[in-house]
Design a protein around this nucleic acid. Sequence first.
DNA 1: GTTCTTTATATCGTATCCAATATGGCGGTT
DNA 2: AACCGCCATATTGGATACGATATAAAGAAC
Lengths: 231, 231
Amino acid sequence: MTASASGVPSAETRFLRPQTAQQAVLAELRALIVRGEIPPGSAIVQDALAERFGVSRVPVREALKILEGEGHITYAPHHGYKVAKLEVAELLEVYDLRDVLESYVARVGVPKIDDRHVAKMQAAMQAMDSAADREDMIGVGVQNRIFHFVVFDASGLTRAVRMIRQLWDTTDPYRSLYFVKPLNRETVNAEHSQIFEACVSRDAEAVVGLLEIHRSHAVQDLRAMAEAAQG
Amino acid sequence: MTASASGVPSAETRFLRPQTAQQAVLAELRALIVRGEIPPGSAIVQDALAERFGVSRVPVREALKILEGEGHITYAPHHGYKVAKLEVAELLEVYDLRDVLESYVARVGVPKIDDRHVAKMQAAMQAMDSAADREDMIGVGVQNRIFHFVVFDASGLTRAVRMIRQLWDTTDPYRSLYFVKPLNRETVNAEHSQIFEACVSRDAEAVVGLLEIHRSHAVQDLRAMAEAAQG
DNA sequence: GTTCTTTATATCGTATCCAATATGGCGGTT
DNA sequence: AACCGCCATATTGGATACGATATAAAGAAC
C-alpha cells in the first residue's frame, strides 16, 4: 500500500485529514475555543454547530463530550454546554498545578534530552522569531508550545504530559483575550535562551528554576490584567 | 438558604438519581471496568452495550467518549473501544504521578482540615473496618477512597483532585484483579491511624511522608504480582 | 504457502421522529 | 409594584431506521 501516483499526501506533508467527522469537529471546535474565537461563557447550541460544520448532531455531541473532559466546556444535563469561564483564582490554580507537574516532568525529561531534541528546540526558537517578525501571534504561540514540550515529551511520561497539555489549552483562551499587546518579546527570548542552554548542559534543576521564573511572569501579567479589568 | 420543608432532598441525603441515560450508562460501565468485571483488553461492542442497558447507541457512545477521556478505555477510529490495559511500567508511572500530585494537594489540604473533615475520616475508618468484617472488599475500597479524599478535597484544588481521582480509577481494576487476598489489613489500618493522627495535628509534612510510604506498599505488592504473573 | 478477493461484522454517520426539560413571557394575585 | 403559578417555545436527550465505510477474517487462485 505504498503512496502511488494517486493524490495521497506523504506522511510529512499530509495536512491532517481527520478520519472521522467527530475528530474534524473536535479539532476545529477546540481550535476555535482555544483561540478565544468563541468567548468564554458562550452557550453552545448543538444544532447550530452541526449545521456550521455540515454534519449531524451525533458527531458534534461526541466532540462536545471530549471537550468537556478536557475542561474546555462545562455541561449541565438539559442545559447544554457552555465555553468554560475561569475566574482569576482558578487561573492561578491552574498555574500552580502547572508548576507542580512541569517541574516533575522537566526533572525526568532533561536528562533524556538528545541531539534531536536540541535541534528541535533551536528550530522552534528560530521559527518563533520569524513568526514574531511577521506579527503572526498565533504562530508565536504554536512555536512557543513546541519549544517547551520538547523537554516535556523527552520525559516519556505520557500521562503527565497530556495533563500539562490540557492545562496549557485551558489557559490559552485567556492569553488570546488579555495579551493583545505582544508581551515583552526580549524577555521571553532571553529566558528561552537560558532554558535552552540549561537543557544543553542537561542541568535539570536549572531548567526547573528557569521554568518557574518563566511562568511567574505570565502570572504577574495575569494578575495585572485581572486587577485592571476589575478596577 | 436553609433546607425548607419542601420535598427538596438535603445535600447530604440526596440519593443521586441519574438524570440522563448517558449518566446511568457511564456510572454503570465505569463501575464494571473499575471493578475489573470487564477485564482489561476486552473489546467493547456498542450495540451489545446498548442492548444490555436497554438504551440506544447514542448515550452509549457519549459515555464511551467520557471513559476514553478518563483513560479507562482506548479508542481507534473505525476500530472501536477496548478496555485499557496497562503494562507494569505504566502502572508505576501512574503511581509516580500520584506521588507528585497527592503530595502537592496534601500540603495544601492538611492545614485546611476542620472538625467535620476529622469526623468524616473517623467515620470512614470505622466503616472500612466493619466492611472488612463483612468481607465486603468493594465496600472497603469505597471507604478507603473516602478516607483519603477527605484530605484531598480539603485543599479546594478541584482540578488537581479530579486528576488524582482519575488516576485512582485507572489503577483500581488492577487492585481488583490482583488483590484477591485481603492485603495485610493490620498494616493498612495502622497506617491510616498514623495518617489520621498527623491530620488531626495538622502536620502536613508528616501526612505527605506517610502517604508516600502508604503508596509504596501498594507499589511493592504490584511489582510482586507482576513478577508472579510473568514467571 | 502466499497473495488476492470476497464476505461479514461493527463502526460511523444521517435523517427523522418523539419525549423531557428549562427558559421566558403572560396574566392573575396579593 | 413585587410575587407566584401557568403555558408556549426552544433545546436537549434519546430512539429508530437506514446507508456508507473500514477493518478483519474466511476462502479462492496462483
